[in-house]
């Protein structure tokens, strides 16, 4: 039952005394018991696969046959136009879309903070899309963008704007924008609740002082709220950025990267090369994944430095 206390008693007064003297120390086996399961999972299912992907990127792997090809995969990658298109699309998405997410979230949070009626209900309602899976969101929005009966085109036709009616996901000029809007629909609520919590944690004296100074809302927003929320907003930007560098599910279900690679992202391209095209080579997609791993980690570190947030990041 109480083996641990028994053993520490049995091992003599000295050990017991020392553990009492500094209760923040523990014997190595206690640490091992606590840390081993997590570290084993990490090593076996995260670190080892990551290293193996790097290693594989120097081979052509077809089934069980692996042929060493050196840097050939990387050389091929440099001249792979589809790869560069997917990089461009992912970058557009990663740098532009977070602004949309965070700005919408901030405005919604300000509306709630300003004390609109039914704030409690609105907060819950606006947060709901965050919980829906990408599969669900993708299916819903595929229907919303449907050419014949989707609500977007119905509204446009009702307003007499027939010229704007298009197949939103089938038109290479609108497909990426359509996906970005869908993604923002899902994530605005998340940014809203984070902004709201941050606004509520601002020192109330400052806000009250600005009210005493008869500071208008525009000025208050510009000179008080936004500067004070800077760390939160930057954190949200980086979170959204990371999420978009990895984007896969939504694109895969709505457009599969089409039409004409207009929505191809690095993630969908890796998936296609590894599991979808009948190329049966796992080496080349490994090279893409390795390059992208370096790009994502590098971008996060650089953004963190540039934006100088000392706060910790969450996923």
């Amino acid at each position: 039952m109480t083996t641990t206390s028994m053993s520490s008693d049995a091992s003599g007064g000295a050990a017991n005394a020392s553990s009492l003297a500094d209760p923040r120390r523990a014997s190595w086996w206690v640490l091992a018991i606590f840390l081993f399961p997590a570290l084993a999972v990490y090593v076996g299912l995260t670190a080892y696969p990551a290293f193996r992907t790097f290693y594989d990127s120097f081979f052509t792997i077809e089934g069980l046959d692996a042929t060493f090809v050196g840097l050939d995969n990387y050389r091929a990658l440099m001249s792979d136009e589809t790869f560069w298109v997917s990089v461009r699309n992912t970058f557009i998405w990663s740098f532009v879309a977070p602004v949309l997410d965070v700005a919408t979230g901030l405005l919604l949070a300000l509306a709630l903070y300003a004390g609109v009626p039914f704030a409690r209900f609105l907060r819950v309602a606006w947060f709901t899309p965050v919980l829906l899976s990408y599969v669900v969101v993708a299916i819903l929005w595929t229907w919303i963008y449907n050419y014949d009966w989707g609500v977007v085109n119905l509204v446009l036709r009702a307003l007499g704007l027939d010229a704007l009616v298009t197949s939103w996901l089938g038109n290479p000029n609108t497909a990426l924008a359509a996906l970005i809007v869908t993604h923002a629909w899902k994530w605005a609520g998340f940014n809203m609740v984070v902004c709201l919590a941050a606004i509520h944690s601002l020192p109330s004296e400052v806000l009250e002082a600005s009210e005493l100074d008869n500071c208008g809302w525009g000025a208050k927003l510009r000179y008080v709220i936004v500067p004070m929320l800077r760390p939160t907003l930057l954190n949200l930007y980086i979170l959204a950025f990371i999420g978009k560098m990895k984007i896969f599910d939504l694109v895969w279900i709505m457009t599969q990267g089409g039409p004409l690679w207009a929505t191809e992202t690095v993630s969908t391209y890796v998936y296609k090369r590894a599991f979808n095209w009948n190329t049966f080579d796992l080496g080349y997609p490994s090279a893409i994944a390795s390059v992208w791993f370096v790009v994502v980690c590098g971008a996060v570190i650089i953004l963190n430095r540039l934006l100088a947030t000392r706060e910790r990041l969450e996923y």
Partner: peptide
């Protein structure tokens, strides 16, 4: 590893 893109482990 929270920032790792999933493809880095997916294929392996």
């Amino acid at each position: 590893s929270i920032i790792f893109p999933p493809q880095i482990t997916l294929i392996s």
